[in-house]
Nucleic acid binder design. Structure first.
Lengths: 338, 338
DNA sequence: GTGAAAGCGCTAACAA
DNA sequence: TTGTTAGCGCTTTCAC
């Protein structure tokens, strides 16, 4: 069934059906009602492929995320989808699972679907796919790439201040030997987080001990592995800051495994504040990044770019803040002075 | 840029460009290569809206889920997306957040996009949207609705046996007073889970005490609330089976809050086995539902319906099994005999 | 092996 | 206020 079919039954032309569906005021109410009736009767839905083809724009925004299994992202997805639904737009989501080929594929899907913009959260991102998007003039927002351009906006997750208060918190508890477990090396977000950590240490008058800095993978096993390394050190840290909560949870597991307890023997701080943090035992002290705010900024950036595709993108920022729970406590006297 | 543009540059017709893109063997290799070069040079992506419009099918399967914040679903999404990517299809996901209006909207989106099939996991589902899909001849798979029809398949999550072994497990630990916290009342899955619980109790020679049966909402707060009710009973249960893991986790919280400890004072069993179960303390004993298998069956059902749209749908089944961890332990002597 | 052309379902400019 | 029509980008006969 198509508009012509509806038109025939309602005794009008397909143009009128189109007008009714799009709420044009230039249709006599009686006609509109008649058409509406037929539409409902037959449960007609206009084919969006035809509409998009005709209009050149789809009303769909893409969202590309690395790992739907990290609870941080579902919460972003939810926020983003809510905003889009509220604004009569749609969301098209794709997951990369950290594979470059999946990133390529995801971008490709966005491109062929003619989405009106893409929020790209894949943290470890090659520039290739991004250029692909830009080349095709698809408005783009990234997270924490700290680069903007024509049609390219960015939302900075500025952890420096948050980490400074996190370190201050640990310091006030007597910790002097503080470790860090980051994400994969050499990519933007991971580097930024480590940079923020280094700055935060410095602000607190402490030096980063290279041995105390390890690499994870943003997931639980990575954190667990890295923490085991840290614990096997002769001279080991008494507290840890992790690049995200899953990493911190992995660390928690490694610590428990080794027979130590948190926060008595060791303090741990994560990043993100996924819901899970408050469900664990001990509840995790962490730097909260507001997901809804994040989703809101993505939307704002994309809408802005849509309004004026030639305008330069904007740099937005969001500032995580410390949420103290029970995974941090006083440094043990013995460890503290070692 | 469109195929005609590519065609002009490559000195061929748009038909040939189409053939090259679709890998037709009826193009002279030299020509194909030339065209391919232009395509890559210009980073051309064919407009899928035109393709779908022309072909009448999109190569996209829809996935509608209630709550992306429940880790069970991201894991299903991941499995489903993987299968689709491997099979050169795409996924279009929508979330309902348990709102009937969002279900409507989600179904509508699937319909206008001309998806080739929908996996509908919204547990508490009205028949309206389902009929809408069926009426529009969109192949459909549901989860645990236990109804099939033309183009309508179902994947039964058969918890009866699993629950029977769960209850047997509790029984062997000395528990005689076993409670149950379900999902919302009056809808299919919740009813089935409760039914399975009742059967499992009977199989183990025990009676269901109505007072011990409470209603949650498949989320943590619902489980917490229901558990508080259970704990406030003068004569209370010593063990609990929850309709899903989030409910069980809520129960865990309520128990801890009340000063009791798990598994010493109370035993808890969940359903699903989300990754989280193993991350909690104590790790949750639960009935595991294999997400990848589930996703695989959705795909199978949809592909089957696509192959022959007039064939009756199939009833698939999946059987959760008990995973024993540390949230279950011996009933305390005092409680056990009360 | 390649091209011309019709048409998928819709919208919008123009005509009536 | 309503209808006619061209055309969005693609695929696919059919002709050459």
């Amino acid at each position: 069934m198509d508009m012509r079919g509806i038109a025939k039954i309602a005794g009008v032309s397909s143009a009128t059906v189109s007008r009714v569906i799009n709420g044009s005021s230039a249709v006599r109410p009686a006609t509109a009602k008649r058409v509406q009736q037929v539409i409902e009767e037959l449960q007609f839905f206009p084919n969006s492929n035809a509409t998009t083809l005709k209009q050149g724009k789809s009303g769909v925004y893409g969202l590309i995320i690395p790992d739907i299994t990290n609870p941080f992202f579902p919460e972003v997805i939810r926020g983003f989808e809510r905003i889009l639904v509220d604004n009569d737009r749609e969301m098209f989501m794709a997951t990369t699972e950290f594979h470059p080929s999946r990133i390529q594929q995801s971008v490709r899907r966005m491109l062929i679907r003619k989405v009106d913009g893409v929020a790209l959260l894949a943290s470890e991102i090659e520039t290739g796919p991004i250029e692909s998007l830009i080349h095709n003039r698809v408005p783009l927002v990234t997270m924490d790439r700290r680069q903007t351009g024509s049609g390219l906006s960015d939302v900075l997750v500025d952890t420096t201040r948050g980490m400074t208060s996190a370190i201050a918190h640990l310091r006030s508890l007597g910790h002097r030997k503080i470790g860090f477990i980051g994400g994969s090396l050499g990519r933007s977000i991971s580097d930024h987080r480590f940079q923020a950590f280094a700055t935060a240490m410095q602000e607190n008058g402490m030096a980063v001990k290279p041995d105390f800095v390890r690499v994870g993978n943003y997931r639980v096993p990575g954190g667990e592995r890295a923490m085991r390394e840290l614990l096997s050190l002769k001279n080991r840290p008494t507290a840890l800051l992790a690049a995200n909560d899953l990493t911190a949870i992995g660390a928690l597991r490694a610590i428990r495994e080794s027979g130590l307890s948190v926060p008595n023997d060791f303090s741990v701080i994560g990043c993100d504040d996924i819901d899970l943090c408050d469900l664990l035992w001990p509840p995790l002290t962490t730097l909260r990044t507001a997901r809804d705010e994040l989703a809101g900024l993505f939307f704002k950036a994309l809408e802005g770019a849509k309004a004026d595709p030639h305008a330069p993108g904007s740099q937005f920022a969001i500032e995580p803040y410390l949420v103290v729970r029970n995974s941090t406590g006083p440094a043990r006297a013995a460890s503290a002075k070692a």
